[in-house]
Nucleic acid binder design. Structure first.
Lengths: 211, 211
DNA sequence: ATTTAGTTTTACATGTTGTCAAATTAAATC
DNA sequence: GATTTAATTTGACAACATGTAAAACTAAAT
């Protein structure tokens, strides 16, 4: 009963240059997705419009990303990659103190400012769709933990948890976006975030900011 | 010559009790919309699911609200109504001072806390869809103007615009939501908003005052 | 009893997502 | 250069959601 599946005698095949073209297609699709998400919003972003702008077929998008959700997740990952987790390590390896706080605030505000409209959409999707909400929440939790370390480095007592919560919220995209919207300048918004962050840390229990 | 359109000789008709039933249907649909938006998110909210939960036909929803967008707008309006614009007037008629600030913060945080999940969805929709974005922005602008009056009442100098921008951002839903998420308590979040608001107002201007 | 108007039913048109299989094409191998 | 390989394209289809329209139905008002 040895079933002979009749293996068709394959010849070795290295994708080589074709992989590069696939990567180009992936990149083009994600670029189009970011652009359309920013410009037209989520409901107007369709597989057809994506295919048209990225120069591939609708079917190819499905081949490369599975579903529309898959494309979105890839955009998520791409943003996370750009977001500079490396720069976050740079912050953490710095000596604790006010300079570290400045860098912490600067990195996030800089990133928020660079991708403001796109991030507004992406965070919005996380807010309306529980499926994506988890991704955003996970990233927020990571920022909270990082904030906790910065706060701890500035030597606050038992209030450190409270202060970390504040610092994380003050460095959230949404707070930055609201500030920038209200004052019209992203640089000004970053300055305000820093002011409020310093206030949050040096508040209440007497121990002032490291000087 | 004179074309006689043959008017069908209408008899007067007062809707009376039927209007009440229509209002009940409207209310049931909006109740279902809020519930499903909160529980399942925006993508899972369909006309069919709405009709099923509210006990009317899909067509009736179209008759009453026009389109799905119309239902959403009605939910917006309903929230705005609940939100207590009346209470805002209450704040404005108060004598300026810290007590007014406390009330200002309390009203918004209380409202955010009461409808947290629903508001997260609604604001999310505003973020992903430019069509709704305008509605949210308009309401944010109104909060900014109110914040400006509160700040002015606390007698800040030329920095009042900056402080109003801060106060408005600090009393935004998103900031409150982030705080509540980070510290786990909505009451605690409100306390933190108030602390930060006081800090924002009593702070010397961000630009170093020539020292 | 009749009229009125909202509701339901039924049907249809459109647009989007997702899947599938065969045809096509370009790169890799021989 | 001919053949093999695998991605891409093409064309078709099913499922589902929104939106529209007209006729049948129903309950309230007259």
């Amino acid at each position: 009963m040895t079933k002979q599946p009749r293996e068709p005698e394959k010849r070795p095949y290295d994708l080589g240059k074709r992989l590069e073209q696939m990567d180009e297609s992936r990149a083009a699709i994600l670029r189009a997705a970011k652009a359309q998400l920013t410009a037209k919003g989520y409901p107007q972003l369709t597989m057809v419009s994506l295919a048209a702008e990225s120069g591939v077929t609708r079917q190819t998008i499905h081949n490369l990303f599975g579903t529309k959700t898959g494309v979105l997740e890839a955009v998520f990952d791409l943003i996370a990659l750009d977001s500079g987790m490396e720069r976050m390590r740079e912050v953490m390896t710095q000596p604790p103190g006010d300079a570290q706080l400045v860098k912490f605030v600067g990195i996030f505000c800089g990133f928020w400012a660079r991708n403001r409209l796109l991030l507004r959409r992406v965070h919005g999707i996380g807010a309306i769709d529980p499926e994506f909400g988890g991704v955003i929440e996970a990233r927020n939790r990571r920022r909270l933990m990082a904030a906790a370390r910065v706060v701890q480095g500035l030597g606050s007592g038992g209030e450190s948890k409270r202060r970390a919560a504040k610092l994380a919220a003050l460095t959230s995209f949404e707070f930055f976006d609201a500030l920038a919207e209200n004052c019209g300048s992203e640089a000004e918004a970053e300055a305000m975030v820093l002011e409020q962050a310093r206030a949050a840390i040096s508040m209440d229990d007497g121990r002032g900011p490291s000087k």
